[in-house]
């Protein structure tokens, strides 16, 4: 895989990770989108260096590895579907709580409160 592609993929994953570790669902969704892009690039790059488009035209020229392309296409569309779902979730969350922040689990906080000796 070309170093440029690998670095690009890594940068996308890094930026995605950075956004992911926050509380606002909008940021998280964008972060997940970036990570998905990064993963797609890794997958695309796994096919080796580019050549002609994988459409047989009788010229007999060497073509790019078509399999990773097919896999990436599948992944892109799946990501699209799930991203749309996540956005619906963000929308619902906003309707319910007037925020798209991801709150902590109430029950967990209760038990942590026991352990710390505090009262909740």
């Amino acid at each position: 895989m070309s170093v440029v592609l690998a670095v690009t993929a890594g940068a996308l994953v890094a930026a995605g990770t950075y956004l992911l570790l926050q509380r606002l669902l909008t940021r998280i969704v964008i972060g997940l989108g970036l990570i998905a892009h990064g993963a797609n690039l890794v997958l695309l790059g796994s096919g080796g260096p580019p050549a002609a488009p994988p459409v047989i035209d009788g010229s007999g020229a060497p073509i790019s590895d078509p399999l990773p392309q097919a896999l990436v296409l599948t992944a892109i569309v799946i990501t699209f579907g799930v991203t749309a779902f996540l956005l619906a979730l963000a929308y619902r969350s906003y309707l319910l709580t007037s925020s798209d922040g991801v709150e902590d689990d109430v029950e967990d906080r209760r038990i942590a409160g026991f352990a710390g000796g505090g009262s909740t």
Binding site: M1, V13, G16, L20, L25, I28, L32, I35, A36, G38, A39, N40, V42, L43, L44, G45, S46, G47, L67, P68, L71, A75, V82, F85, L86, L89, S93, V102, D105
Partner: peptide, 23 residues
Amino acid sequence: MTYVVVGLVASGLFLIGIGLAYA
């Protein structure tokens, strides 16, 4: 949210793993 986000992170990492294995 917790469930879906963790699930998607795992899916992303899985995809990267597939890329590495194919590479």
